[in-house]
Design a protein around this nucleic acid. Structure first.
Length: 203
DNA sequence: ACCGGGATGTTCT
DNA sequence: GAACATCCCGGTG
């Protein structure tokens, strides 16, 4: 099962984030005995992407984005929330895929304990900060190696293929770079970010 | 269901 | 001082 499966290879991440992102749909993120199937992601394409943290160059906060790929980039936002990305591309390209929503698979009791405000299980991981809360990811996991066999945070394949026709839309919550269509999701999944379940673009 | 506002503090201008 | 890759709660329909 997911908890013992092998992580994705390093070559999986060493591609453009816009190519990695749809391939991450239906993969499984595993941490601390909990597992969830990724159903919504966004690509951030480095120093040329006005919506990316890397757009204004390297800072202490975004250093993990600049490589190597296959690491977890975890950042703090709005004074209280953590969000997690998989670093992609070549070293220095500063690309990443934001993990926006997931379907809880395993360790639901622990997730409920970490997210007491979640009324239903579909509220456990239905947003980037909720996902981090439910899985117990925070700043201490920034830079974690996703590729290492014995690593604490892993992204694994359990045999479920990504959707043949993923839903696509603009990215959520941005003031700049909001026109780019760099969000992918599993159409109709109940765990998507609330208010974004409509498929805006096909293909 | 949908909408509006407040929480909360790091980061960079 | 402003912005911020968000979430939650309490209103209304």
């Amino acid at each position: 099962m997911p908890v013992t499966a092998r992580p994705l290879a390093g070559s999986f991440y060493r591609r453009d984030a816009a190519d990695v992102a749809p391939d991450l749909l239906n993969k499984v993120i595993v941490h601390a005995g909990r597992a969830a199937r990724i159903v919504e992601v966004e690509a951030y394409r480095g120093v040329d992407d006005p919506g990316s943290h890397a757009y204004r160059g390297r800072t202490p906060r975004n250093a993990t984005m600049f490589g190597p790929p296959g690491r977890l980039y975890v950042y703090f936002v709005y004074g209280m929330h953590w969000c997690a990305n998989a670093v992609c591309g070549d070293d220095g390209e500063a690309m990443a895929v934001l993990l926006r929503a997931a379907a809880p698979l395993r360790g639901l009791e622990a997730m409920r304990a970490l997210r007491p405000s979640a009324r239903r299980d579909r509220d456990l991981c239905s947003g980037p900060a909720k996902l981090c809360q439910a899985l117990g990811l925070d700043g201490s996991h920034d830079g974690a190696d996703l590729v290492a066999p014995g690593g604490g945070v892993r992204i694994v394949a359990d045999g479920t293929a990504p959707p043949t026709e993923p839903g696509r839309s603009a990215r959520v919550g941005l003031s700049t770079g909001a026109d780019l269509v760099l969000r992918w999701f599993v159409p109709g999944d109940p765990n998507l970010t609330p208010g974004t379940k409509v498929m805006l673009i096909r293909g």
